[in-house]
Design a protein around this nucleic acid. Structure first.
Length: 648
RNA sequence: GCUGCUGUAGCUCAGUGGUAGAGCACUCCCUUGGUAAGGGAGAGGCCGACAGUUCAAUCCUGUCCAGCAGCACCA
C-alpha cells in the first residue's frame, strides 16, 4: 500500500480501509470517512484485494464534502419517503455546493414541506444509523424495486451495463441503489445542511417524459460553513444585474415587450461606450462593418435552411395589409406570404459576399455587424439581460479558405482574450464542442476543423474542456463562458466553423486554380450579445463599472448656492474634456448628495463650495475613498480625462 | 414550453371577507448646510387580468398573464 507521503506498507489481501486506518492510529480510525483507492473514492469497509495507492479521507479533505453531500441526499430521500409514503425515489447526485434528489409523487412538494423534512433529516443524522453496502443480484434488484412500486429505480437498474454489479446502500430500514461510496454512519453527515428550493425536472432530462419534483439542498462540513455559504448567496444577490439595472437607472423590462430591453439613457451610454470600443478593436483587426435587413421574405429563410430547422424560434410576420375596420379581424384574408425577423445575421452576410465574384486574394473577408436579431425564446428561458428575445450581437463572419481556418481562429482567440482582459474578465471557461451524431460534411473535414480549433486554443494558451457531440450540425465550435453573480455560467463569445451554409447559399470564390470553391465561414462573436455582456459586466463589477464605461463619470456637487455659477463652469470644463459629467446644484446638504451619488456608484465627485469657487479648485472624492484632495480645477479635469480613456 | 412559488404606491415591503398602510423616492415650504440620509407639509393605489362563491372579494376558488427558481432549449 502506498500512502500520500510516499511511504509504503504491506497488508494482508482483503484488508479494509478502516483496518488500515486503525493500524495507523486510533484517532485516524475515528476521523476516517472513506478512502481513496488509486484516486477513486471507496467505502472504508470495502476489502482491498491488490496493491494500490491509498488515502484515508477525513472531514477536512476536499473530497469529504462530496461524501457529506451525497450522504445528505440519501438522508433527505429517506426522510421524504418516511414522511410522504408512496413517493418514488429516482436519482440524487451532487451538484456545486450541494445536492438534489428527484422524486416522483402525484402531488409536488412545496417549500412549506421543508421544515418537516429537515427536522426528520436531523433526527436521522442524530440516530447515527450505520450505512451498509450490499451487492445484489441484478434480477433480484429489479424485482425488489418493482415490487416496492419503484418503477424509476427498476428502470435505472435495467439500463445499467450488464457486467456492472448492483450496489445498494442500506441505512436502517431504508435503502437505495447507489454507486457509493458512503460514510460509515449517518451521524458523520453532520448538521451543516439546508434545503434550498423545489423545482420540476424531467425524468432523464427528456422533456417528453415524466416531470419529477426536484429538491435542492446545500451541505457543508458544519453549520459555520453553511452560514458562510448562505451569506455569500445574499451578497451575490445584491449584485444581480436586474436589481442594479433598476437601482442605477440603466434599463427596464416590461410585460408588453418581454424579453426586449428598454435601455435608459445611462444604460445606453454604457452600451455605446462598449460598442465603440469593440468597433475600434475589430477595425484594427481587419474587419469591415456592414448593416443588413431586419425583415426578410420567407423564401430567403427557406433557402438558408432556417425556415425548416429554426422556424419555431423565429418571429414570422404575414406579408399582407392589415384590416383597418374598427373591431374587425386583424387580417381580412389568410396571409399567403410571410416574412420573418432575422434570428441570425449569417445568411444576410452571405448575400453581400455573393454580390460579386470573389477571388482567393479577397480572403479572408471579415464581415462584421452589430446585428439586431430576434429569437422567440421559450418564456421560461427569459432572464433579465442574460436571455432576451431581441439581442444585438457583435457578430462577424469570416469567409476564408480551409488553410486559413487555424490562423483565423488563433487571431480570433487572441483578439477575444485582449477584449476580455480589457473588460476585466480573466476567469473564463472555454468549451470545445465537437461533432454531433447528426452532422453535415465528411469526417475528414471535421477532423481538420476540430484540430484547427485545438491548435488555435493551444497557440492562444487557453485551457479548455471538450464537449463531445455538442457542436452544431454544420461544424464544431468554441464557447467562451462567464459566470454570473449567482454562479450560473453563460456563453458569451463563440466561434463556429461552418462548411454547410456557403454551399447551401452558393457562396464561392475563384481559387488559384481558376476553379470555383466554397469558402469556409467562421461565425464568431466576442461579447456574444451586448445585452448579455452588459448584464454580466454589471454583475462582475457589482455595478461599479470601470471609469471608461461608467454612464456618469463625474458629478459636480455644490455645497452652497454661492458656488453655483462656478460649478457650472467646472461642468463645462469637464464636458469640453470629453468627460460624461453632471451637475448637482439641488438644495440639499453635501452629505445627502455624497450619499446619493455614492449609492449611484458615480466614480468621481467634484465637490465645490465657496472655498473652491474662490481658489479655482475642486475637492475630489473618488468612490470607496474618503480622501478629499483639493486640486486646481483645470489640472484635475485634465488628469481625470486621462483616466477616463478607454483601454483601446 | 414543463414543475413549483410569487404578483398591494415609482422602489422595498406590511395588512384585512366590509374597496388600504409604512419607509425611501416625488412635489411644495423652511433650512445655505464642508464629505454617506436636516425639518415640515402634500400628492400618489381598479391591491396583475378575467370569471365564480358571497349581502359584500385586494383577501376564498378557478382560468389567464407576467415575474422568480429549476428543467428543457440557448448568445
Amino acid at each position: 500500500m502506498t500512502f500520500p507521503d510516499g511511504s509504503t506498507r504491506t497488508f494482508a489481501r482483503g484488508v479494509t480501509g478502516f483496518e488500515i486506518a486503525e493500524s495507523i492510529s486510533k484517532s485516524l480510525a475515528k476521523a476516517a470517512l472513506a478512502v481513496m483507492i488509486d484516486g477513486a473514492p471507496a467505502d472504508l469497509s470495502q476489502p482491498i484485494e491488490s496493491d494500490c495507492s491509498l488515502k484515508i479521507l477525513r472531514r477536512e479533505d476536499p473530497e469529504a464534502l462530496e461524501l457529506i453531500r451525497h450522504d445528505c441526499a440519501h438522508i433527505m430521500a429517506q426522510a421524504v419517503q418516511e414522511l410522504f409514503p408512496g413517493t418514488q425515489v429516482t436519482i440524487g447526485p451532487n451538484v456545486e455546493n450541494g445536492f438534489y434528489y428527484d422524486f416522483a409523487r402525484s402531488e409536488p412538494f412545496s417549500t412549506e414541506d421543508f421544515a418537516a423534512i429537515e427536522k426528520r433529516m436531523h433526527e436521522i443524522v442524530d440516530s447515527a444509523t450505520p450505512i451498509v453496502r450490499e451487492v445484489w443480484d441484478r434480477d433480484q434488484a429489479i424485482a425488489y424495486f418493482k415490487d416496492k412500486g419503484e418503477t424509476f429505480k427498476a428502470e435505472l437498474i435495467a439500463d445499467l451495463p450488464g457486467g456492472e454489479s448492483i450496489k445498494v446502500y442500506r441505512q436502517g430500514d431504508w435503502l437505495d441503489l447507489c454507486r457509493g461510496p458512503h460514510m460509515p454512519t449517518t451521524k458523520l453527515t453532520g448538521h451543516g445542511f439546508k434545503l434550498m428550493k423545489v423545482a420540476g425536472a424531467y425524468w432523464r432530462g427528456d422533456s417528453s417524459r415524466d416531470v419529477l419534483t426536484r429538491i435542492y439542498g446545500t451541505a457543508w462540513r458544519d453549520e459555520k460553513e453553511l452560514q458562510a455559504h448562505l451569506t455569500q448567496i445574499e451578497e451575490a444577490e445584491k449584485r444581480d444585474h436586474r436589481k442594479l439595472g433598476r437601482e442605477l437607472d440603466l434599463f427596464h423590462l416590461q410585460d408588453e415587450a418581454q424579453g426586449s430591453v428598454f435601455w435608459h439613457p445611462k444604460g445606453y451610454t454604457v452600451w455605446l461606450a462598449l460598442e465603440s470600443y469593440i468597433r475600434r478593436r475589430i477595425r484594427a483587426a481587419g474587419y469591415v462593418e456592414v448593416k443588413t435587413p431586419q425583415l426578410m421574405d420567407s423564401r430567403f429563410w427557406e433557402q438558408s435552411g432556417h425556415w425548416g430547422k429554426y422556424r419555431e424560434n423565429m418571429f414570422v410576420v404575414p406579408d399582407v395589409v392589415p384590416n383597418t375596420e374598427d373591431g374587425g379581424k386583424v387580417f381580412k384574408e389568410e396571409p399567403k406570404h410571410f416574412m420573418a425577423l432575422k434570428p441570425m445575421n449569417c445568411p444576410a452576410h452571405v448575400q453581400i459576399f455573393n454580390q460579386k465574384v470573389r477571388s482567393y486574394r479577397d480572403l479572408p473577408l471579415r464581415m462584421a455587424e452589430f446585428g439586431c436579431c430576434h429569437r422567440n425564446e421559450a418564456h421560461g428561458a427569459l432572464h433579465g439581460l442574460l436571455r432576451v428575445r431581441q439581442m444585438t450581437q457583435d457578430d462577424a463572419h469570416i469567409f476564408c479558405r480551409e488553410d486559413q481556418i487555424e490562423s483565423e481562429c488563433t487571431a480570433f482567440c487572441d483578439l477575444l482574450e485582449k477584449v476580455y482582459a480589457d473588460l476585466g474578465f480573466t476567469d473564463l471557461t472555454v468549451k470545445l464542442a465537437t461533432r454531433p451524431a447528426v452532422r453535415a460534411g465528411s469526417d475528414d473535414v471535421w477532423d481538420r476543423a476540430e484540430q484547427g480549433l485545438r491548435d488555435a486554443l493551444m497557440s492562444a494558451k487557453l485551457d479548455y474542456v471538450e464537449a463531445p457531440g455538442d457542436g452544431a450540425f454544420y461544424g464544431p465550435k468554441l464557447e467562451f463562458h462567464i459566470r454570473d453573480a449567482i454562479g450560473r455560467s453563460w456563453t458569451c463569445g463563440t466561434i463556429q466553423l461552418d462548411f454547410v451554409l456557403p454551399e447551401r447559399l452558393d457562396a464561392y470564390y475563384v481559387g488559384e486554380d481558376g476553379q470555383k470553391h466554397h469558402p469556409v465561414m467562421l461565425h464568431r462573436a466576442i461579447l456574444g450579445t451586448l445585452e448579455r455582456f452588459i448584464g454580466i459586466l454589471i454583475e462582475n463589477y457589482a455595478g461599479k463599472l470601470p471609469l471608461w464605461l461608467a454612464p456618469v463619470q463625474c458629478v459636480v456637487a455644490t455645497i452652497t448656492s454661492e458656488a453655483d455659477s462656478y460649478a457650472q463652469k467646472v461642468l463645462e470644463t469637464l464636458k469640453a474634456a470629453g468627460i460624461r459629467a453632471e451637475l448637482d446644484m439641488r438644495n440639499e446638504k453635501i452629505n445627502y448628495k455624497i450619499r446619493e451619488h455614492s449609492v449611484q456608484k458615480v466614480p468621481v465627485l467634484f465637490v465645490v463650495g465657496a472655498r473652491e469657487a474662490e481658489g479655482g479648485t475642486v475637492a475630489i472624492r473618488r468612490m470607496d475613498d474618503i480622501a478629499q484632495p483639493v486640486e486646481k480645477m483645470d489640472e484635475a479635469v485634465k488628469a481625470l480625462a486621462v483616466t477616463c480613456a478607454p483601454p483601446f
